[in-house]
């Protein structure tokens, strides 16, 4: 665990000292909320807040982390780290803590926009609950981001992550409830993530299905990540 914290420290310091990267990480999700929230104006402000809470975490966990992994994996520094007496676990702990901390910063900025600019009627308890669920969702998203990050090459990773990030974003709320899409959306992790968050507002929604689904995805993405990671080590 101590080594995991050391990894977290270097990932975190590298990011917060990179001002342009930090600025865009912080500005992107609240900006998206500002631009799109009017679509839900007077209709489903909670829905908008939930979707953008989750989306802000998804952007950090899936896109930023995944693209970072792709760029870093073949660097001389990454190769040097592989000569140190360390297994996968501390690095994984460091990456997860790094993702959670950046996601937390993002959620904070989204909350400020929701409360003070959009004046969404949401109380502190609701914000804490939505944020907690959003942060929980960071786990499968980060594992997916790292799995793809290790599998993709630097040339293709930007397109892959941009497309996937958008598909998962729209998949979380915009698919119709009937027909083939009604069935398909149950298999989209971000949809289940939204349902889990929404269960806090609508007590009739069962949390069992989304929890099972997200847990299953987490294990699957962890397996996938380990496989991809080991593959890159076997040069």
């Amino acid at each position: 665990m101590r080594l995991g914290l050391e990894y977290f420290k270097i990932y975190f310091l590298s990011t917060i000292r990179n001002i342009p990267a930090l600025f865009f990480t912080l500005i992107f999700p609240p900006l998206m909320l500002l631009l799109f929230a009017h679509q839900w104006e007077e209709k489903n402000a909670f829905g908008a807040l939930i979707v953008f809470f989750n989306y802000s975490v998804q952007t950090v966990a899936l896109m930023l982390l995944g693209m970072g992994v792709t760029q870093e994996k073949n660097s001389e520094w990454a190769k040097y780290l592989r000569s140190l007496p360390v297994g996968l676990k501390p690095m994984l702990i460091g990456r997860m803590l790094h993702t959670l901390s950046l996601s937390f910063i993002n959620l904070f900025s989204v909350s400020l926009v929701a409360l003070f600019i959009l004046h969404i009627n949401v109380n502190f308890e609701q914000i804490i609950s939505f944020a907690t669920i959003a942060l929980l969702g960071a786990i499968p998203m980060a594992l997916l981001g790292m799995a793809i990050g290790y599998a993709a090459n630097p040339e293709s990773s930007r397109s892959i992550f941009t497309l996937l990030n958008l598909l998962l974003f729209f998949g979380s709320f915009s698919l119709p409830a009937t027909g083939i899409f009604g069935t398909v959306r149950n298999f989209i992790p971000t949809y289940q993530w939204t349902v889990l968050s929404y269960s806090f507002v609508d007590k009739s929604i069962s949390i069992l299905n989304p929890l099972i689904c997200l847990a299953a995805y987490s294990f699957f993405f962890l397996f996938l990540f380990q496989k991809m990671y080991r593959k890159t080590q076997k040069v």
């Binding site: 001389e76 520094w77 190769k79």
Partner: peptide, 11 residues
């Protein structure tokens, strides 16, 4: 010590 080493930005 590898032949070439580049340290991460910011550290």
């Amino acid at each position: 010590t590898p032949q070439n080493i580049e340290f991460p930005e910011g550290l």
